[in-house]
Amino acid sequence: MKSIRQNWQLYLLLLFPFVYFVLFKYIPMLGVVVAFKDYNIFKGVMASPWIGLEAFREVFAMDGFYNALRNTFVLNLLDLVIGFPIPIVLAILLNELRVRWFKKSVQTILYLPHFISWVIIGGMAVQLLATHSGVVNQLLTSFGLKAIPFLSEPIYWIFSYLGIGIWQSAGWGTIIYLAALTGINKDLYEAAEVDGASRLRKMWHITLPGIKPTIVILLIINIGHMASIGFDRPYVLSNPQVIDVSEVISTYVYKIGIQSARYTIATAIGLFQAVVGLVFLLSAELFSRKINDQGIW
């Protein structure tokens, strides 16, 4: 209470995010009861009849659910393995640049795609990568090469999905690591230079250990999201020709819940997804604590 009286302005500022999380994060959790009811929009949540675990039995009997779950894990795993290290590498390389204006320019160019809507990015992808009308394939065919079905063949679509995602998000991740790099003591670099350490040695023994806590935290968060995936990116890049590899949990829930109005089934899938994500998050946290005694908490 003494701390509150002395710093009431700071606690007042804390009140706004607290109210936000209560209203938009915790109160909506009451909606998970829909997964255990035969929900009728006219009767409402409380008046709808209770069906217990029947919705989950139906979900686990759907072939489409397992296909979407598999694709979610595969795409997230590829994003983690291929996309996660790229912001780290970019941040270290930018940190080594000595020309300040060039460093700022490259940094700005890298993070600008983060602010572009996925709808716009999807339109750009079609204009650039379409098999017959895309700019890239028109250039390839003009040189006598064969057109590449970037968006119409499953294997090419996966690589296109990964590449576009990395282009959109790598710059923003780079900013996080650059911010972490500012906290490294500059005296360490000077001492290493006196000892004759090369630039590569300084990156390996000072820079990487300096941002290790940030890497661990972001890695745990990414592992916690293995069972979930954003709706925008797979939806705008998907098409009927690659639906077998592009259908993920978020788009599947959209089709089941919104297009088919099966709200109970959609809620059950969402609850299952949240529970699996929580298990992944806690497992990654526990593993990180066991290995290097670092984690989120």
Rank of each mutant, 00 (worst) to 15 (best):
G171C: 08
Y177M: 14
S169Y: 14
G31E: 02
M203K: 11
Q9W: 10
M1N: 08
D63L: 04
P209Q: 04
A47G: 02
I256E: 05
Q259F: 07
G163N: 09
L139D: 07
L129S: 12
V89D: 06
T131G: 04
L139Q: 13
Y235D: 11
L162T: 12
V135L: 15
A180F: 07
S117A: 11
I256T: 08
D79M: 14
N222R: 14
W204Q: 14
N222T: 14
I215M: 14
N185G: 11
F42W: 07
I265S: 05
I4R: 02
D293P: 06
K104E: 09
G277C: 10
S48D: 02
V119K: 05
R289S: 00
L94Y: 03
Y20G: 12
I41M: 10
V245M: 01
V99G: 03
R70A: 05
K103W: 01
V22F: 03
K146P: 10
N7S: 08
M124Q: 12
I243L: 05
P85L: 06
A268D: 06
E153K: 15
R201A: 14
T214Q: 05
Y235P: 06
V32I: 14
I41E: 07
S160M: 09
P28T: 02
E190C: 07
S133Y: 11
I109K: 00
I291C: 03
M203D: 01
A180E: 09
Q241P: 01
S142M: 13
I215R: 04
G257H: 03
A284P: 01
I211S: 09
A91D: 05
N76G: 05
L80E: 06
G134Q: 13
S238D: 04
W8L: 07
K2D: 13
T267P: 09
S246F: 00
K212H: 10
L178G: 10
F231H: 09
L12D: 01
P49Y: 00
P240L: 01
A197W: 04
V216A: 03
Q6F: 05
K290H: 08
R233F: 03
P85S: 04
K186Y: 09
V216L: 08
F272T: 15
M1I: 10
K255S: 08
P49G: 02
W172N: 09
I296F: 03
Y161P: 13
L162I: 15
R289M: 01
L145Q: 14
K255N: 13
W118G: 12
A261D: 07
Y66F: 09
D244N: 13
T182H: 02
